[in-house]
């Protein structure tokens, strides 16, 4: 958990737990180019000591601006990237050893942010959806598999006959639903959903979110959920993490954070939401330039844009302060000078 001492543990046995997880990328120019033009080796810290725990049957959501590290956390959580530091545990065991066992591996799956890149263009949709069923030997007879694929396609608002078609014959939202059907086909109980409904109209989105909730209630599914749509996040989340430049800066029950955001960044993020009033008015985008993750500002990474920043903020990286059920990484909150 964020601070080892005053740990704040959401109730329930965690399915997935991240303890101080970091991930670095080497973004230097190729060696030869560096030698020729004298560039330095550069690393980008996409995730910086993130800690969270997701209890069984609950949804943990991550929000934050584009490029803050959400998808990287998602990939770390299913073992697509190894962490550069820290620990990830699946049901109390190191993720890496858990992944080595097909029985455990089958129990986690991921819906990717990019539905195009994640579907094999040369396969028919029915084979794409059936692939995990076959790979894990969940059903044996061709008839059973066909029925199950039809059922999965129906659940996401597609038809059995759509199984004959190839991914490129579908619209963006239809492809996204194919990737949801495929993710559900291995009957996972831990599902990472990276922008699962971003390509869907609000009515199909409502159908999919209702389906995900039904499955959660029926089968105790656990979700790591990522979305830019804060209304959707509010609707689905139990716990919520707000990320900024690779760090989780606010962490706690979703309802509590939406009701009373504490971190200055969270407050600005919630203010930037468009509404339906058709006022033609402009939203307040979070002011200031998004800092470079290659050379993050010293101290609190949010200080160049923060209305509450002071000298301490540009020098000292804030630790976590506990406020009720919420953890916040902010000096102003700790010093009690952040009254809403």
């Amino acid at each position: 958990m964020p601070d080892a001492g005053g740990a704040l543990q959401p109730a329930g046995e965690p399915v997935l737990e991240a303890i101080g997880v970091s991930r670095l990328f080497d973004v230097s120019r190729p060696w030869l180019q560096r030698v020729l033009s004298g560039g330095r080796r550069q690393t980008l810290r996409a995730v910086d000591e993130a800690s969270f725990a997701i209890p069984r049957g609950t949804t943990f959501s991550l929000v934050g601006e584009s490029g803050c590290g959400k998808s990287t956390v998602a990939r770390l959580a299913v073992g697509l990237y190894p962490p550069s530091g820290g620990d990830i545990r699946f049901e109390g065991r190191p993720l890496r050893t858990a992944l080595a066992e097909p029985k455990l591996r089958r129990r986690m799956n991921m819906i990717f942010q990019d539905p195009y890149a994640s579907l094999n263009p040369r396969w028919r949709v029915r084979d794409i959806v059936a692939e995990p069923i076959r790979a894990f030997g969940i059903l044996k007879s061709a008839g059973q598999i066909r029925d199950r694929v039809g059922q999965l396609l129906n659940q996401v608002g597609l038809a059995m006959s759509d199984g004959d078609r190839y991914p490129h014959e579908f619209s963006g939202g239809q492809r996204q639903r194919v990737s949801i059907a495929r993710a559900l086909s291995s009957e996972p109980d831990f599902l990472v959903c990276d922008e699962p409904t971003s390509a869907l109209d609000v009515s199909v989105q409502a159908q999919i979110l209702n389906l995900m909730k039904d499955l959660q209630q029926r089968l105790q599914l656990t979700y790591l959920f990522i979305s830019h749509n804060l209304a959707v996040v509010r609707h689905v989340s139990d716990q919520l993490g707000v990320m900024y430049l690779g760090r989780i800066v606010e962490y706690g029950p979703g309802e509590e954070i939406f009701r009373a955001p504490r971190h200055p960044y969270t407050r600005l993020l919630l203010e930037a939401i468009p509404d339906l009033k058709v006022t033609g008015s402009r939203r307040t985008p979070v002011a200031g330039e998004v800092p470079s993750p290659i050379a993050p500002p010293p101290g609190c990474p949010f200080h160049p844009r923060c209305p509450l920043a002071n000298a301490r903020c540009s020098a000292e990286k804030p630790g976590y302060t506990r406020d009720g059920a919420v953890l916040v990484a902010c000096h102003a909150v700790e010093e009690g000078r952040s009254t809403p």
């Binding site: 584009s66 942010q113 971003s198 830019h228 939401i273 939203r283 985008p285």
Partner: peptide, 18 residues
């Protein structure tokens, strides 16, 4: 512009729309 802002957070969205 076909879904130009779906992968963007609300703040960048506002900027792109501007």
């Amino acid at each position: 512009a076909d879904e130009p802002t779906t992968a963007l957070d609300v703040s960048i969205q506002a900027q792109v729309i501007e």
